[in-house]
Design a protein around this nucleic acid. Sequence first.
DNA 1: CATGAATGAGAGTTCATTCAT
DNA 2: CATGAATGAACTCTCATTCAT
Lengths: 196, 196, 196, 196
Amino acid sequence: MTTVAGSGARKDRGDTRKRIQEVALELFVRHGYEKTSLREIAEVLGVTKPAIYYHFRSKEDILQSIFEDLGRPVDDLIAWGRQQPPTLETKKELLRRYGAAMDATVPLFRFMRENEATLRDLKVGQEFNQQMTAIGEMLTDPQTPLIEQLRCMGALFTLHFGTFALGHFEGDPEVKRSALLAIATDMVETAHGEDA
Amino acid sequence: MTTVAGSGARKDRGDTRKRIQEVALELFVRHGYEKTSLREIAEVLGVTKPAIYYHFRSKEDILQSIFEDLGRPVDDLIAWGRQQPPTLETKKELLRRYGAAMDATVPLFRFMRENEATLRDLKVGQEFNQQMTAIGEMLTDPQTPLIEQLRCMGALFTLHFGTFALGHFEGDPEVKRSALLAIATDMVETAHGEDA
Amino acid sequence: MTTVAGSGARKDRGDTRKRIQEVALELFVRHGYEKTSLREIAEVLGVTKPAIYYHFRSKEDILQSIFEDLGRPVDDLIAWGRQQPPTLETKKELLRRYGAAMDATVPLFRFMRENEATLRDLKVGQEFNQQMTAIGEMLTDPQTPLIEQLRCMGALFTLHFGTFALGHFEGDPEVKRSALLAIATDMVETAHGEDA
Amino acid sequence: MTTVAGSGARKDRGDTRKRIQEVALELFVRHGYEKTSLREIAEVLGVTKPAIYYHFRSKEDILQSIFEDLGRPVDDLIAWGRQQPPTLETKKELLRRYGAAMDATVPLFRFMRENEATLRDLKVGQEFNQQMTAIGEMLTDPQTPLIEQLRCMGALFTLHFGTFALGHFEGDPEVKRSALLAIATDMVETAHGEDA
DNA sequence: CATGAATGAGAGTTCATTCAT
DNA sequence: CATGAATGAACTCTCATTCAT
């Protein structure tokens, strides 16, 4: 009935699953994970709750799947970092790539930051924590003085949390982003004893 | 109704209210605000739920009161800052005092950071956000180049979020704290064109 | 629609229907009727739920069909019994054949016994109850004293429920079964005033 | 408001808990455990579902509590039996008392029998099974021939399941009960080599 | 014959909150 | 000050069942 092949815009295809992820992430970001109910997600999508359960086994599973799809860039980044020599150049590249990865998935990162308590005992939250920790470890060299380790960590925080605060400042987004990266880079250079 | 400071020996010395706050904060920090139920709080305290409602009008009210009591140092800090000239020295002192205020109430700050999404539409969360913003504004001078504004903000982030990460590093807590403060101070000095 | 006995090589030899029955009975026995979901049955079979609905109109229909296929021996037994004279010899033969019928379909009987409450308002459960009652009536002669009627009924219960308890005793299954039958036979003989 | 001490019929007292148990048992017996919903129980009682949860932690907990209250007689019986010598007289007394215990709690026993599959993986069901097994073991002497062991078990089954079937027979309930007990007693006497 | 996708109904459970006492 | 008892609303999740394909 609703058939006919042709070109165009079908009501749904196999994209329901993806639409669930999109809507869920949007609502998770807006209201928080706990306060977003499946009823709400279903309502926005115009389907019923069980329809969601056809595609995902549980509410947590929706989140999990979002992370698996969107979190990959950071996973890749970590894998890449582990194969590089721990030089200053590597660290600067790490920051550059991390900033880019964040930028591509700001909502996900915002969600992570804002729901830390909730995610703590959700499998997915622990994985994310490990990601952050892993990158932190690549940036900080245990051989160096404490203050320099902390400075590298500060570089990461400046970049990470600063990204979310960029909205408070005026100017071209691209310019703001590279300014932020420049600051973070300065910090690791300072930590390595170079002149800024 | 509200506790009177005044004189004497009250039946339970009015500390029930305080105990509720303490237990609540501890559980809020541990499990998150949403996932902490009043039943749990009451159970830990060994009282019944209505007993809590005698002291507080709602769950949110408990949180509110905690902030009013514990968040005052930051309020005071902001008030102080507003009366100072916007010099480098002021900024350095701001960071120093902010670090000290955090230190005195780490759990509260941790809770804030980890429950941002939840708190966002709770009155108290907005107030906190204003606090952070207010301090940020005192540190950043809109007249200076964007990158230096961002650097000052990075100093705040480094200090703020770094505090929570200090546990990952070895060493005397006092030493770690002052190292962190030194880094933040470096950053605002750099922003002001001074040599680090 | 319904399977045709007839000739030839069907694509999947019509055994899908039978496999559904087998798996369903096994799960019904293991977890109970209510707690066995069609999803579970479908999963074990490696097919989808609608595939089951192709063969059966409803969950209850699956059960119904199992009974029609496996419950026939008892139906036949009842038909046979109704054509015999109500002698002691007939009763002994009834017990013998009932024991044999049970033995051939222990799982079904076990399922019946363990899900009585559930089955009560399922058509199939009522039919089974009528079976039990019918056999009971053939064994008990309303003309005889109450105690002897009860004794005959006790013979049936001993045989029926004892069968399920045989696992608790050691020994050759065949030996145990005939011992049980012997006891039941003793009882009806006693009821008929014969020496055991 | 609804106060006033005096004699009479108060709307509730502390008996809500007991009323829940009564209604629940009645519905469990009538429709089975699984098919009885808390909504139904609440509706019959004229309260809301959470009211039930104030008194019981879960649906299973309701059942558990019913058993703890009503199942005690059998527990006591088992305790008593374990302190007696394993004589014929003891066994006869066991049957007598078991019959009496059942009679006092027919609905509970009926419920057990009819919901075996459901209860199997509910803690309470396992406990009940142990009860039955315990009494069976007191009646059967492993030293005697298999057939006599089975006969004793048959005595228990006759008494147990016969009790539920008594409704099918006419006559004074008291008379029917003692007839049933007499049959069971006969059986254990026969097993002990005595003349019936 | 079979599947992917969806639905309506309802389950058990928990929550913040409110009375009368 | 505090309790016992209860409520309304909402939650996550599961079920048997039904389509169009």
